[in-house]
Amino acid sequence: MKHLIVADDDTTIALGFKLILEGAGYRVTAVHDGQAALEAFQADPADLILTDVRMPRMDGLELVRCVRGRYAPDLPVVIVSGSVDPDEIVVNRRAPPTAVLAKPVGVSEIVRAVRDLLQSAVEMAA
């Protein structure tokens, strides 16, 4: 079972994402800021991180830089934000699989993005 870390400072959204992704068959750790997500990753590495951008203690983009820089350079990431235009987030096309979604986001869109990125990661590793 693939392990996902969900980081969002809105506890309702974090819990919602957790329930959606658990329902899709994933094991999910939900946390409420980037620092807690980094600590969760260190304790139990994930196969994918789904993160908001603006959060206390450490924002989502810094979280992604830290995890990919220190632990898992090819880690797939889903960035979900209501405060940042997805077009403003530059994704290096040679970087590991990354999806950027704007809130509000639908259930099927989240599940599809996670599934597709995990599949891309498997294909890149092969």
Rank of each mutant, 00 (worst) to 15 (best):
K2C: 12
L4A: 08
I5A: 10
I5F: 05
V6R: 10
V6F: 10
D8R: 06
D8W: 04
D9E: 13
D9H: 12
D10V: 13
D10N: 14
D10C: 13
D10A: 15
T11W: 15
T12E: 15
T12F: 12
I13N: 12
I13D: 13
A14N: 13
G16N: 15
K18D: 14
L19W: 13
I20N: 14
E22S: 12
E22M: 13
E22R: 14
A24Y: 14
A24W: 15
G25A: 14
G25K: 12
G25N: 11
Y26C: 14
Y26W: 13
R27E: 15
V28Y: 09
T29R: 14
T29C: 14
A30M: 13
V31T: 13
V31I: 14
H32Y: 12
G34R: 07
L38R: 10
L38H: 09
L38I: 11
E39C: 07
A40F: 01
A40W: 02
Q42I: 11
Q42H: 12
P45R: 10
A46H: 06
A46W: 05
D47S: 11
L48S: 03
L48M: 08
I49T: 05
I49K: 05
L50R: 01
L50D: 04
T51E: 08
R54S: 11
M55D: 11
M55R: 07
M58G: 01
D59Y: 06
D59P: 01
G60D: 09
G60E: 10
G60W: 11
G60S: 10
L61T: 01
E62G: 01
E62D: 04
V64G: 04
V64W: 02
R65N: 03
R65L: 01
R68V: 07
R68C: 05
G69E: 03
G69D: 02
R70G: 00
R70F: 00
R70P: 00
Y71D: 01
A72T: 00
P73F: 02
D74H: 04
D74S: 03
D74T: 09
P76R: 04
P76C: 04
V77D: 02
I79H: 01
I79D: 02
V80A: 04
S81M: 06
G82T: 09
G82C: 08
S83L: 11
V84R: 00
V84G: 04
D85K: 04
P86E: 07
D87R: 10
D87C: 06
V90F: 08
V91M: 06
V91H: 02
V91P: 00
N92F: 03
N92K: 09
N92C: 03
R93G: 00
R94N: 09
A95R: 06
A95G: 05
A95S: 04
P96T: 01
P97R: 04
T98V: 08
T98F: 09
T98W: 10
A99G: 01
V100G: 08
V107L: 07
S108C: 03
E109P: 00
E109R: 07
E109C: 00
E109A: 02
E109G: 01
V111D: 04
V111I: 07
R112V: 06
V114T: 06
V114I: 01
V114S: 07
V114G: 06
V114D: 09
R115S: 09
D116N: 08
D116H: 02
D116I: 00
L117S: 03
L118I: 05
A121Y: 08
A121T: 09
A121Q: 11
A121K: 10
V122Y: 06
V122C: 08
